[in-house]
């Protein structure tokens, strides 16, 4: 059971409440046996979750991707990594808590980690600027990634941001330059790079740490050039039409797989990652280690060449006479 239900999860909420009530009276009253009723409701609950989650609209996926209980970077830090040592600062200005960098072990593999962290509680969210990095965040990430190259360690980046922060100070310190430099440098880093969108892949702020050999997405995550709200407010001057924009932008896994923007969709447990973090981590772990094993078999010059070609071929156009 979760504490927060999305609007389309109303039927699930009702059934989970009934189950909880029955359980309570069941444990308080030994004369009456509700176990059959509970079993039946459980079955119904499972069926409901399955039918709802198998037919999510892009806007519903967006809501799941932003679910307040969805595992965020700090959950991966605790549950995906076997250990983690954080490093701080861009050596130029300050440490940006919206991006976390460090060293981690997953199984027998050592990684350099770059991850966007939205923060759990209000205090953390504010400290981490809701996962919206400033230029120093991208410069810190670049510093960590250069260390990875130097010590021949693979890079794993975890993406979860509404976008790079659009503020006065970010502009003063060159938000655009920081992102551009990251795209430029990552394309040539002599070490395997795996990127995983764990929630929101918000435009340049996401791409800045996703110029990778493999880009993976969790089933209920999104990756887009613009948020559905902003798209709706530009096109129709009404952010309330975000649902329609989410549809039009084709920002969910299956579409991005078709466009060859990503390599794989990692399945989430039924009902979304927030219903079973441990199972989510297991799927991520298997997938990341499999991709790394494949990448390690490729020689470095070939890896760089393939990474170039991977992005080189992205785009759709026509050549006319």
């Amino acid at each position: 059971m979760t504490a927060y239900y999305l609007s389309f999860e109303k039927p699930i909420e009702e059934i989970e409440k009934s189950i909880a009530e029955l359980r309570e009276s069941h444990s308080g009253n030994r004369e009456v046996d509700f176990s059959i009723e509970i079993d039946e409701l459980e079955k119904k609950r499972e069926y409901l979750i399955k039918t709802i989650y198998e037919n999510l609209t892009p806007w519903q996926v967006t809501q799941v991707a932003r679910h307040p209980e969805r595992p965020i970077f700090s959950d991966y830090q605790k549950q995906l990594f076997d250990d983690f040592l954080e490093i701080h600062g861009d050596r130029l200005f300050r440490d940006d808590p919206a991006i976390v960098t460090g060293f981690a072990r997953i199984g027998n593999e050592k990684f350099v980690i770059v991850g966007e962290d939205k923060g759990k509680d209000t205090k953390e969210k504010i400290r981490r600027n809701f996962g919206m990095p400033n230029p120093e965040g991208y410069r810190k990430a670049m510093r960590a990634m250069r260390l990875a190259e130097k010590f021949k360690k693979p890079i794993l980046s975890l993406i979860d941001t509404a976008g790079a922060y659009p503020g006065i100070e970010g502009e003063e310190r060159g938000q655009a330059e920081a992102i551009a430099r990251s795209l430029f440098e990552m394309s040539g880093l002599k070490t395997p790079i795996i990127s995983l969108v764990i929630g929101e892949g918000g435009s340049g702020g996401a791409l800045a740490i996703a110029v990778a050999d493999r880009v993976l997405m969790l089933q209920n995550s999104i990756y887009s050039v613009i948020s559905p709200e902003s798209c709706a407010s530009i096109l129709w001057r009404d952010a309330g039409l975000a649902e329609r924009a989410a549809e039009a932008l084709k920002m969910t896994g299956p579409n991005l797989l078709k466009l060859k923007v990503i390599e794989e969709i990692i399945p989430e447990p039924m009902g979304g990652a927030h219903r079973d973090t441990a199972a989510t981590m297991k799927n991520v772990r298997t997938s990341v280690l499999r991709h790394l094993a494949e990448l390690k078999r490729i020689s470095t010059p070939k890896l760089i060449q393939k990474r170039y070609e991977r992005f080189r071929r992205l785009g759709a156009f026509e050549i006319v006479k």
Partner: peptide, 12 residues
């Protein structure tokens, strides 16, 4: 959509 975003990586 996303294909526009990818042009940033491609050109860089």
């Amino acid at each position: 959509g996303i294909l526009s975003l990818m042009q940033m990586a491609k050109t860089s």
